[in-house]
């Protein structure tokens, strides 16, 4: 049997480097996810009000993020801002900015969908009980909306984690780049390393995303 090439991972500091790359990817996604969830929730609530100007602006923002591939956004923020304004953003910071912009846009759209899907009678009943609009949101609408949000926002979170594989294009050495470096440095000694190393990367991504899916299932059961 041919070797799978996993042995290159145990040479020198290779395994620690791969874990370091995973931590970099995780850090970028965790920070961006936290920002996206908070901002997305706020913006989503705002948009579900019937303010036409606000809706128009948000619509533009959303469409812009939707039609732009994440790679283009990364280049725009990393290289574009230093060309246009002379800002020297690091690769990590650019990635967090792009992922937060993207996550916030999608999250606010999900929140808007969830909030508007709460039947109108819920608002009317709550108002009839003498609640203020803030109380209606806090105690009646949000708890119902959040429940509807879980499946799609979990989907968004796992997509954000997986898309961090693009940030190698702005010089961030994350898990996939470390994997490519290891394969390349050992191509002569272990020509099969590509299989073993990519298999390991697959398992690591799985380990990152699987707990998120489990949490989602758990929450859906508890709140469902």
């Amino acid at each position: 049997m041919q070797s799978l090439g996993v042995e290159v991972l145990f040479k020198g500091k290779n395994f620690a480097r791969l874990m370091g790359g995973m931590w970099t990817a995780l850090k970028i996604s965790l920070v961006s996810i936290a920002i996206s969830m908070v901002l997305g929730l706020l913006l989503g609530m705002l948009v579900s009000r019937k303010n036409r100007v606000l809706r128009g602006v948000m619509r533009c923002y959303l469409e812009f993020i939707h039609i732009m591939p994440q790679m283009v956004l990364l280049f725009l923020v990393f290289f574009g801002t230093s060309k246009a304004f002379g800002w020297n953003l690091s690769g990590e910071l650019s990635s967090v900015i792009v992922f937060s912009l993207w996550g916030t846009a999608e999250m606010s759209d999900l929140v808007r969908g969830a909030v508007t899907s709460v039947p109108k009678i819920q608002y009317e009943s709550a108002m009839a009980l003498g609640m203020t609009p803030a109380q209606v949101n806090r105690y009646v609408i949000l708890p119902q909306a959040v429940r509807r949000l879980i499946p799609q926002s979990i989907n968004l979170i796992t997509r954000m984690i997986k898309t961090t594989s693009l940030v190698l294009m702005v010089g961030v050495v994350e898990i996939l780049k470390v994997a490519q470096q290891i394969i390349e440095a050992n191509r002569k000694a272990s020509p099969n390393a590509a299989f073993g190393v990519y298999l390991t990367v697959f398992l690591l991504y799985f380990l990152l995303c699987w707990p998120v899916s489990l949490l989602a299932k758990h929450l859906e059961k508890r709140w469902g």
């Binding site: 020198g12 500091k13 490519q180 470096q181 394969i183 390349e184 002569k188």
Partner: peptide, 17 residues
């Protein structure tokens, strides 16, 4: 380059070579 052996790559100790 960090993945172009032998011009620019990273060895098993994480050093550019």
């Amino acid at each position: 380059f960090s993945d172009k052996n032998p011009f620019g790559y990273v060895d098993e100790n994480g050093e550019y070579q």
